[in-house]
């Protein structure tokens, strides 16, 4: 494996087994065969609607959920089914997560200092002075200044944007290499989002961090991530550099997604936006063949029979669609 690939997902599957009644079990195939490589310092946006599996993918990537199949290789090490506590702890130092909800992601009974110190205490930083230094530096990094002012506060005393920064500081405090950001700005006011996203960018540059950025908002992906992966019903249907994918979408679903999102344009009210009918099918019984075929305007013969695999159409630009298999 190349040295600069920090995370490799090989055909990762995450299924949820829900008991139904006394004897049956429903299998929800949230992530159903995803393979990705992430290079050090890269930011990758995972875009999809609800039910696409993007949230599950993010949590699987940092082993908050154990995958049902496939492999996860982080920094050269196979962590797919890691059980050893110490090794797990080592991994956790290097891979962190930032959550969507700025309030629910912070324990309301802990002060900011306690919240930020906890990771350090767990990982054996015994010297209180050292911890204080690290915490203050991380608060400065997320632009919560002066840091002393924030340490003794409780989460409910801060605004949503400030709490989100505390979440980011907590993820940064152990100096990780890889961060999963799960819808980090969707609960922040529109006019404050870019501030947080610029913060991510500056942290990424300063510390050579790798970001997996999960979102339903494809437009932000264009501004803040190097690469973009579009997910539909547990699979990646398109992958490539963000600008390329957005300006030149290959997969019908990606196009539909882009068409559905309005830019602020007064002409919008006079036109009917071209929209794909129907809704996302259930992940319990995904449609056979290409999962999107039930709604795809370009469906043709092979689509309901065999599943398309990701093939390269342009440098670094891959699509999983039978339309491109002819080439």
């Amino acid at each position: 494996m190349e040295d600069n690939v920090i995370l490799r997902l090989e055909d990762v599957r995450t299924y949820f087994f829900l008991p139904k009644g006394l004897f049956k079990t429903i299998v929800v195939k949230a992530v159903d065969g995803v393979s990705l490589d992430m290079k050090r310092g890269e930011s990758l946006a995972i875009v999809g609607e609800s039910g696409s599996g993007k949230t599950t993918l993010g949590r699987t990537a940092i082993r908050l959920i154990e995958p049902t199949g496939g492999r996860i290789i982080f920094d050269g090490k196979d962590i797919t089914h890691l059980k050893d506590e110490n090794e797990m702890k080592m991994f956790r130092r290097n891979a962190q997560i930032i959550f969507q909800d700025p309030f629910m992601s912070l324990n309301p009974y802990m002060t900011i200092r306690e919240i930020l110190e906890e990771p350090l205490i767990i990982h054996g930083y015994k010297d209180a002075e050292e911890r204080k230094e690290i915490i203050e530096k991380s608060l400065i990094d997320v632009k919560l200044q002066p840091p002393e002012e924030f340490l003794l506060k409780y989460p409910h005393m801060l605004s949503g944007g400030q709490r989100q920064r505390v979440g980011i500081a907590r993820a940064m405090v152990l100096n990780p290499k890889f961060i999963v950001a799960d819808e980090p700005v969707s609960m922040i006011d529109a006019s404050s989002r870019a501030e947080i996203l610029y913060l991510f960018k500056s942290l990424q540059e300063k510390y050579n961090l790798t970001f997996m950025y999960i979102t339903h908002d494809i437009a932000t992906a264009k501004y803040f991530s190097d690469n973009l992966a579009v997910m539909y019903l547990g699979k990646v249907v398109e992958y490539g550099p963000s600008r390329e994918v957005i300006l030149n979408p290959k997969h019908p679903y990606t196009s539909a997604l882009i068409t559905a999102v309005p830019d602020p344009d007064p002409k919008n009210r006079f036109i009917y936006r071209k929209v794909i009918s129907g809704e996302i099918p259930s992940a319990v019984n995904p449609p056979p063949g290409c999962r999107f075929h039930t709604r795809c305007p370009y469906k043709f013969d092979p689509c309901d029979k065999s599943e398309p695999t990701l093939i390269q159409v342009n440098p670094n630009h891959k699509v999983a669609c039978h339309l491109y298999n002819k080439k």
Binding site: S191, S192, E195, A219, K222, Y223, D263, P264
Partner: peptide
């Protein structure tokens, strides 16, 4: 102006803006 400027657009390019502070 700032509100409109802070919306990421798919079809055009611009420098994304934000408003520091809180309501």
């Amino acid at each position: 102006a700032k509100l409109i400027g802070s919306i990421p657009t798919l079809r055009s390019d611009k420098k994304l803006e934000f408003i520091p502070g809180a309501p």
